[in-house]
Write a protein that binds this DNA or RNA. Structure first.
Length: 206
DNA sequence: CATGCGATCCGCT
DNA sequence: GCGGATCGCATGC
């Protein structure tokens, strides 16, 4: 990369998902697909645990779909939802710890024309303010499942340009789930206009 | 602005 | 066969 940011090392992801999820706020998600580079700043995340979290895809047991979550940290877990959307997750914790962070919203940083081309007809504010939207804008699908986020070069990277996570992130229950609503495992940069609009109960937003 | 619903398909029972 | 870590549009206030 020709900028001053650097790839976030695997050790960053080799921690509790409840540390990594808020820690990812402010980091950059960089995708190189189709001959172009698209970058977004992470402004909203959700933590998903293993057999301690009824809302997690890894709650029941290891299956073909959730296999990535059981692997080493720093890899990408892509899943298909509602028959039409892809969601992007970062695997956390040591190998065998099946936890991951769902990236729920990005602030566009570079490659906005590519994002607009992938989401024709959408207003700019709707390019990346949701997990399905940002995957579409960045071109992420199941083809990128298992990608190593710490390689360089790599198709998908998490980079750090020196922007620290907020001292006091917004915290709430997770969006769109019907169980474990007392888990306040959603984190976001309070007041950031790119955060998805949903505000579940228990939030501390302004 | 809030609520409601249809689209569309995969994973798991 | 059922339900889902969503989105976009339509409706109604």
């Amino acid at each position: 990369m020709a900028d001053s940011s650097r790839v976030v090392p695997r050790s960053f992801f080799d921690r509790s998902v409840l540390d990594v999820a808020p820690g990812l706020l402010g980091k950059l998600l960089v995708v190189n697909l189709g001959g172009s580079t698209v970058t977004g700043r992470i402004v909203e995340t959700e933590a998903y645990g293993a057999d301690d979290d009824p809302a997690s895809h890894a709650y029941q047991r290891r299956t073909h779909r959730n296999a990535v979550m059981f692997g080493p940290p720093g890899h990408l877990y892509m899943y298909f939802i509602y028959g039409m959307h892809w969601c992007a997750n970062v695997v956390t914790g040591a190998e065998g710890d099946a936890s991951a962070v769902l990236i729920r919203a990005l602030e566009p940083v570079a490659g906005v024309p590519e994002m607009q081309a992938r989401r024709t007809g959408r207003r700019d504010r709707d390019l990346t303010n949701g997990p399905g939207k940002l995957s579409a804008a960045l071109g992420l699908t199941g083809a990128q499942n298992f990608s190593d986020l710490t390689g360089h070069p790599s198709v998908v990277q998490i980079r750090d340009d020196g922007t620290p996570p907020p001292d006091a992130p917004g915290v709430s229950s997770r969006v769109g789930i019907s169980v474990a609503q007392d888990y306040l495992w959603r984190f976001y940069i309070a007041g950031n206009p790119w955060v998805s609009r949903a505000r579940p109960s228990g939030g501390t937003d302004v």
